[in-house]
């Protein structure tokens, strides 16, 4: 079996980016510094830091950040000297201007994300990141929504634009093991560059899908400490580190260091246990963007309707990442039909 595995993989921690969703983008600079330092001590090679919806994500639509992205980036750069700091950018939300500023603040890795069918809106951003000497990851979100072949065609657009890595991103935590494997395999066959996998745990498959992706050729793997992330959280990084160690795959990350960073630094920050509760499970089951979870809970309360009804309807409407406003519209419409009057 071991010959299926790459000799070495690059692990990316997303606790300070995807995890930002779980804390409604309210990390303090001090918390960012502590987590980044713990990840640096554990020798995690790449640490992503941004608003959950990327640079420029601070908004009424997605939630205002406690502090500007750049302050978080600077804090992470300062406290994680041997780690590369990554930033996320979603074209349509953030702009190249913000990417330049992040680069100036010390970010070395750019992750440029689009819905899985819209890779061409990222070409300019990928090109700029490349020109600025950054390592560039293309991020194809909601990858469960299209076939492996279509996904590979979109991945080619990102590779041509200059991406060093193209990711299969299971934003909804909806992929089953075989589906994750097929998508990574399709990209592996179509691309010369590296392939990555970003998982969510809404169906309890975060680590399993990540291993399947690795077997199919993914060499950049995302995770977060304690699973801190949108929905039921991400692939749990310290678990992945331990499993890869047992499998004999080189990550360069200290197993105990990752455990300690999770237990001692991130666990005390958790606003609530990161578990697969009913709403998170519905997200994976219905194939809805994971960061809709907290927004849907808030809308359910405001309009006096069921969270699950909102999420299932969002899935039926084939909403994509970034459409948090649809949560309000759906909740409003359900409430209108039910004759419930919205609260303030």
């Amino acid at each position: 079996m071991a010959d299926n595995y790459p000799a070495r993989v690059t692990l990316v921690d997303v606790s300070l980016r995807d995890g930002s969703h779980a804390v409604r983008h309210q990390f303090t600079e001090k918390q960012v510094a502590q987590v980044a330092a713990a990840l640096d001590a554990a020798r995690v090679p790449v640490v992503e830091v941004s608003h959950g919806d990327g640079l420029g994500g601070s908004s009424l639509q997605y939630g205002f950040s406690r502090q500007p992205d750049l302050e978080w980036v600077r804090a992470a750069v300062e406290h994680a000297p041997s780690t590369k700091i990554a930033v996320l950018l979603l074209p349509g939300i953030g702009t190249r201007q913000e990417l330049k500023q992040a680069r100036d603040a010390g970010a070395q890795v750019a992750r440029i994300a689009t819905h899985c069918t819209e890779a061409d809106i990222a070409e300019q951003h990928i090109e700029l990141a490349r020109e600025m000497g950054m390592t560039v990851c293309g991020f194809l979100m909601m990858a469960h929504m299209i076939s492996p072949g279509e996904l590979a065609r979109q991945a080619r657009i990102m590779e041509k634009a200059g991406a060093h890595v193209v990711y299969v991103v299971d934003s909804a935590g909806a992929l089953l093991i075989e589906e994750a494997r097929e998508r990574v395999q399709a990209l592996r066959d179509a691309l010369d560059c590296e392939v990555g996998f970003h998982g969510h745990n809404n169906l309890g498959l975060g680590v399993a899908n990540t291993l399947a992706a690795m077997e199919a050729g993914a060499t950049w793997l995302d995770g977060s400490l304690c699973g801190l992330g949108a929905g039921a959280g991400n692939t749990q990084l310290e678990v992945l580190v331990a499993v890869l160690d047992r499998l004999g795959v080189e990550t360069g990350v200290s197993v105990y260091g990752a455990m300690d960073a999770a237990e001692d630094v991130v666990k005390p920050l958790l606003p609530r246990p990161i578990v697969i509760d009913r709403d998170a499970l519905v997200i994976g089951y219905a194939g809805v963007y994971s960061s809709f979870l907290l927004h849907a809970r808030r809308a359910a309360e405001r309009f006096g309707v069921e969270v699950r009804d909102i999420l299932v309807e969002l899935g039926r409407r084939r909403t994509v990442g970034g459409q948090e406003d649809q949560i309000i519209q759906v909740a409003y419409e359900i409430a209108q039909r039910a004759g419930v009057s919205p609260g303030a």
């Binding site: 349509g92 939300i93 819905h115």
Partner: peptide, 10 residues
């Protein structure tokens, strides 16, 4: 002001 654009392929 701030503007966001989202493309949906449905």
């Amino acid at each position: 002001g701030k503007a966001i654009i989202v493309l949906n392929p449905a």
